[in-house]
Design a protein around this nucleic acid. Structure first.
Length: 602
RNA sequence: GCUCGCAUGGCUCAGAGGUAGAGCACUUCCUUGGUAAGGAAGAGGUCCCGGGUUCAAUUCCCGGUGCGAGCUCCA
């Protein structure tokens, strides 16, 4: 296979640039490696621009970068372009690809470039952001574009691509600027990968938690209730309660104490914490007896008040408080999205107060906790450590020690992690947990954040062995993040087919005729004693209909009861997924359910 | 918050300037069925809200609210 680019001193250079500079390096072939796809997608974006230009000669182009999920190009045309035009553009792209245009590169000075694109205000504004004196132009056929590359040697390599969606986007991402048209697309080195990607997208749409949540009656939203305020329906309530229960026990086992702060606290406290000044526009305020109150957007202040309830000794530390904290945040309307982004949600929040020396062991413990939970749900995950940003508060030494503690914890656990330099919060470094779901999508859930700021602001302290007052370190952490978001992710991860231990209903019981109803009820009662929820499908409908209804309800286990079962004290088990049937006696069935429910412990 | 689009029974959707329809779900009756839709009858809608145009608006226009896509934001 031909090389489409080379790696030179850790830099990816296209062949045009390499020959221009007269350098050589390890060849990169056209495959689905990250480097290769980068080049391919970048060139596909250009091919799209070429196609658009030929269809809409007045088109002006802004930027067309490669992003995580493909590429896009922002541009402006006079006529309206809609979803339906994508096919047409794709066709034109194939036409140019088949022409096998060589992609040439040449450099001109910034002044020349400004002249060249004098009547293209979009390109001019791109150039304003380029500090260098010369710019490069890439040319394929008639089409030329200002670009830094790297690009393929020829359009002939572009074959497996798809334009995905069309949307508006502001010039430079600033809503004060004009709106451009953006088309997103994706490209791969081979047909199979493109197909797999398209299948994944279709699968993702099928798994949309808003759709499944509606079908399974997990939750709903109502216009009259307000945007971003979810309503939990009974089935969702059961699922959520199971999750909460499991997690509660897991916290207790690890020495966390349940606490609870009020929903609203006096605004003065939010001034002390700094939220009033820095997060105020996301908060809801009200006034009670002429005193201003703020509805909590976070739980830390409440937990600080728990800490302050007694004089603390180093012997007490670490102190670990947890709360399923209901918080309100004023998210922008455009950001709201199902359960993923709401204005009221419940965090599985905890705060640890400890000494600087204890940071590392605390982190290790949390990381282990995270591992337990995420592997139970079948998520792969990785950690991202974010270090000190430009704007930061606190002692430089504490920063350094904190960051080192995070890295040590990773290494001690042999965990894969990445570092986001300067990505930390202003008050401390953090670890974010990114999970990968069943169809390969990444989600950010948990986070562990060290905080030197709030202990300072609230003047927290403990007495050390010499009876000196020392400021404790505060660690914020959430593992699921929020129940809302996590249940949304779980719904998509499992496509609604929740495993037994969190399913809203564990067993569907289908008595064949009315004479079997008593036996059905008897089993349902026994299941409740085991902590399992069941639903009896005894409506006046055909057996087939009731089995179908139970199947569509995504209940993990279905049992059918008739004369034989009543007589022999057995159940006929139907596996929802395989549609296979088996028989078991009642006791061993109950034991099996109990085992399945209890086998999960975080 | 911004741009664009959408809003019709519980759900999924069709429809027209002259006050509405389908499927599923629901109710009642018949059917008592052994593993993915048995049959019949029936009930149910201020066509999101507020203005405007019109003899007449659910339909056209404006504003609001909610939802969707994207941007932006995310202590």
């Amino acid at each position: 296979m031909d090389a489409i680019a080379i790696r030179h001193n850790d830099e990816i250079l296209d062949l045009q640039t390499a020959s221009q500079r007269g350098v050589e390096g390890e060849g990169i072939e056209l495959d689905n490696s990250a480097e290769s796809l980068d080049v391919l997608r970048h060139s596909t974006a250009h091919l799209m621009a070429q196609a658009i230009k030929s269809l809409y000669p007045e088109a002006k182009f802004y930027v067309g970068p490669v992003v995580k999920e493909g590429f896009y190009y922002d541009f402006k045309v006079d006529s309206e372009i809609g979803e339906g035009d994508l096919k047409k553009i794709e066709k034109q792209m194939l036409f140019f690809a088949k022409k096998k245009h060589e992609i040439e590169k040449y450099e001109i000075s910034m002044d020349e470039a400004k002249k060249k694109f004098a009547n293209d205000h979009l390109k001019l504004s791109v150039m304003e952001r380029i500090p260098s004196d010369t710019v490069s132009i890439y040319k394929q056929g008639e089409f030329e574009d200002l670009c830094r590359g790297p690009h393929l040697p020829s359009t002939k390599y572009i074959r497996f691509f798809k334009l995905l969606k069309i949307a508006g986007a502001y010039l430079g991402g600033d809503s004060k600027n004009e709106m451009l048209t953006r088309i997103y697309g994706i490209a791969f080195a081979d047909k199979e990968s493109l197909k797999a990607h398209m299948t994944m997208l279709a699968e993702a749409a099928k798994r949309d938690h808003r759709k499944i949540g509606n079908e399974m009656k997990l939750f709903t939203f109502r216009e009259e209730v307000g945007a971003g305020f979810p309503i939990w329906l009974p089935a969702g309530g059961r699922l959520r309660a199971r999750l909460e229960g499991l997690l509660f026990k897991a916290h207790r086992k690890r020495g966390y104490e349940p606490v609870r702060g009020p929903e609203m606290l006096r605004a003065d406290l939010w001034k002390v914490s700094g939220h009033y000044q820095n997060y105020g526009e996301n908060m809801y305020f009200t006034s009670i007896d002429e005193v201003e109150f703020g509805v909590k957007p976070m739980n830390c202040v409440g937990h600080i008040k728990v800490y302050e309830d007694e004089l603390r000794s180093y012997r007490d530390l670490p102190l670990k408080y947890f709360e399923y904290g209901v918080v309100h945040r004023h998210e922008m309307t455009g950001a709201l999205h199902g359960l993923f982004r709401v204005r009221e949600f419940t965090q599985d929040d905890a705060h640890m107060f400890c000494t600087v020396e204890q940071i590392e062991e605390q982190i290790i413990e949390v990381v282990d906790f995270v591992d337990k939970i995420m592997t139970t749900f079948g998520f792969e995950y990785k950690m991202m450590i974010s270090t000190k940003p430009e704007k930061a508060v606190g002692d430089a030494q504490v920063w350094e020690k904190s960051e080192q503690a995070l890295i040590n914890a990773m290494q001690a656990n042999n965990l894969e992690y990445e570092i986001d330099e300067g990505g930390g919060a202003f008050y401390g470094p953090k670890i974010d947990i990114k999970i990968t779901d069943a169809i390969g999508r990444e989600w950010q859930c948990g986070t562990i954040q060290l905080d030197n700021n709030l202990p300072e602001r609230f003047e927290l302290e403990y007495n050390d062995g010499d009876n000196e007052k020392i400021q404790p370190v505060m660690i914020h952490r959430a593992i699921l993040g929020s129940f809302e978001r996590f249940i949304g992710i779980l719904t998509e991860h499992y496509a609604g087919e929740f495993p037994m231990f969190i399913a809203p209903t564990q067993v569907a019981i289908i008595p064949i005729a009315q004479t079997h109803n008593a036996y059905a009820k008897e089993i349902a009662d026994k299941l409740i004693d085991l902590g399992a929820d069941s639903e009896i499908f005894d409506k006046n409908e055909s057996l087939n209909k009731r089995i179908r209804t139970a199947e569509k309800g995504r209940v993990p286990m279905i049992i059918v009861l008739g004369d034989e079962e009543v007589e022999a004290k057995t159940v006929a088990i139907r596996d929802r997924r395989t549609r296979e049937q088996s028989n078991a006696n009642l006791d061993s069935f109950l034991t099996m359910i109990q085992t399945k429910i209890n086998e999960v412990n975080f």
